[in-house]
């Protein structure tokens, strides 16, 4: 179970998360929906300890990541997680199969390295890829990259998987393939996951429950069928993809990245 309470995070003057409360039950896939730049990635990164919130707690199996300070116990905490990055984040100096087994060397130290290649093949098969082991990431298409990244995230058989926009930027068919994969993984591996997305079709398909994030808070959490017929004007507007409604997309919400220093 993942339990987030009052998570607050700001970057400089920008208050991104303003008190997120969220519970993810063991074995479920919680989907977080919300507009671009509303802090979905920031929340996921807080869960795995890549970002440290200023306030609040995030407790997983009784361990509060926001209170861990030494690197060894944070590393121990992260061992339970697989993380799919929004852009894949494949290591571009390594081949596909080296990418896939990368984490095994650190996370599962009882596997002899002679078996790595075979394991990579198996994991790639799990995401519907074959004969790509020796490609470099730069030689793959967007959808293939995402699937390799997915294979890498699940390679060490984590009990929690965090997906950051697993279907964004893919064609509709590939999106559906990835959604099926996520469903499959949930059934086969019995993982607990959080998936961040703004692809509603995928959200309905994979979600046990859907939470909507808006202006740094969770507007509501509900079963996908409830969300589908929700009358909450915020949720309605987002789900139906309307420009008119209570959610005002101010231009300043799309401020460019802060200037590098």
């Amino acid at each position: 179970m993942i339990e987030a309470q009052g998570v607050k995070k700001s970057f400089g003057k920008h208050h991104i998360l303003r008190g997120v409360d969220l519970i993810v039950e063991t074995g479920e896939t919680l989907v977080i929906i919300g507009g671009s730049g509303c802090g979905k990635s920031t929340f996921l990164k807080s869960v795995i300890g890549l970002i440290r919130p200023q306030e609040g707690s995030i407790t997983v199996d009784g361990v509060d990541i926001t209170r861990l300070s030494d690197e060894a116990s944070i590393a121990q905490y992260r061992k339970n997680f697989g993380y799919l990055f929004q852009e894949g984040a494949l290591f571009d100096s390594l081949t596909v199969w080296e990418n896939v087994i990368f984490g095994l060397r650190y996370l599962a130290d009882d596997i002899p390295s002679s078996r790595y290649r075979k394991i990579a093949k198996e994991k790639l098969a799990l995401v519907g890829l074959k004969d790509v082991e020796d490609f470099m990431p730069s030689e793959l298409s967007g959808g293939m990259k995402k699937r390799v990244a997915l294979a890498r995230a699940i390679a060490a058989e984590p009990s929690y998987i965090l997906y950051d926009e697993p279907t964004t930027g893919l064609d509709p068919i590939m999106s559906d393939v990835i959604s099926d994969l996520i469903l499959d993984l949930q059934k086969k591996l019995k993982v607990t996951s959080i998936a961040v997305t703004h692809d509603m079709k995928s959200a309905y398909k994979i979600a046990s429950r859907i939470a909507m994030l808006h202006e740094g808070r969770v507007l509501g959490v509900a079963h996908p069928e409830v969300i589908r017929v929700s009358t909450n004007p915020y949720i309605r507007q987002f789900v139906d993809g309307l420009s008119q409604g209570p959610i005002q997309m101010k231009l300043k919400d799309y401020e460019p990245e802060p200037e590098p220093r």
Binding site: L50, A75, R78, F85, F91, F102, L107, A153, A156
Partner: peptide, 21 residues
Amino acid sequence: AELGTMKVTEQVDALYTLGTN
């Protein structure tokens, strides 16, 4: 340049999630 590119494409973050740093 190499490490900088790895940083901005989140490969550095990926190292943390894969058990190293």
